[in-house]
Amino acid sequence: MKRPELVCPAGTPAALRTAVDAGADAVYCGFQNATNARNFPGLNFTPAEMEQGVAYAHARGAKVLLAVNSFPTAGRFDLWREAVDAGARFGVDALIVADIGVAAYAAEAHPDLRLHLSVQAAASSPEAIRYYVREFGVRRVVLPRILTVSEIKDVKKEIPCEIETFIFGNHGLMVEGRCSLTNYVTGLSTNMDGVCSPAAQVHYDKEADGSVATRLGDFTIDRFGAGEQAGYPTICKGRYHAAGREDAYYAFEEPISLNLATLLPQLMAAGVEAFKIEGRQRSRAYVRQVVGAFRGAVDQVLAGEDPELADLVALTEGQKQTQGAAGSKKWR
């Protein structure tokens, strides 16, 4: 069995060091601007930090994958070009791209630099994946979180590049790179600005009865009883009313976390080359714990042992978790 890469989130330089020390084979990160899809306040790297981060990772045998995976709008392309060039200059091991223009630029300007296709490109069929391989020489695709394990296995047979799948973390419901819900509500775009449910427009409105309404911009996303923990108002995890439903319900998905820990052996057998842990916005403690647990589990599977998955399951203790689409077609 091939040794898969464990690809871990590095929202900050400190998280990068933590992930590398905890056994990450690769970390992914971005610059402090709209060029990456996690353009959140307090996250990401300055150019100097990126250069240092690459040195730290490389000295310990880990790779750095630079996410330049949002969609430049006309007239702003220079910012994305600078990010691509800086990544090449600092010696990152691959660029993660989604936009066709960015992919074309990177392939032309830096033909020796590996390109990974971001999940934001939503390449969900062998044809879509092969398009990016054919046109830009993409070496790895990050698969959308919509395929079952057996479908992943089938895709693998039909594409001439590596596969990276999400294995743990936040579980988005919409096709990545095709969601304008945040922009409809807040005026900031996921694709163009790298923003999803921005904290600056989040409100927790306490009502007279002690309940809390969570709001994004002008729209209430959910309401929680006096004793309940109020969740973060992400539009696709909210409760809404529809005709024919008595109560407000999770019209898209429950606030739930993706955890494919128990499918790890099957995914490795299917030939998945890399496993991605979501969470560039999460704390160092979280990164250490999750990366450490998955490092152990992957190594146990490689050694032919049954992985101890209890630790991984415990990571989402108290929170609901799902295998999402990977477990069953019924998810759809």
Partner: peptide
């Protein structure tokens, strides 16, 4: 959908609003 870009292989076509064409380079 991008799958169509693979299949069409250079023949004439239009690009719909559900494709991500945000800039002049794309």
């Amino acid at each position: 959908n991008t799958a169509g870009l693979f299949d069409i292989d250079g023949r004439a076509h239009r690009i719909g609003p559900l494709m991500n064409v945000y800039n002049e380079r794309t």
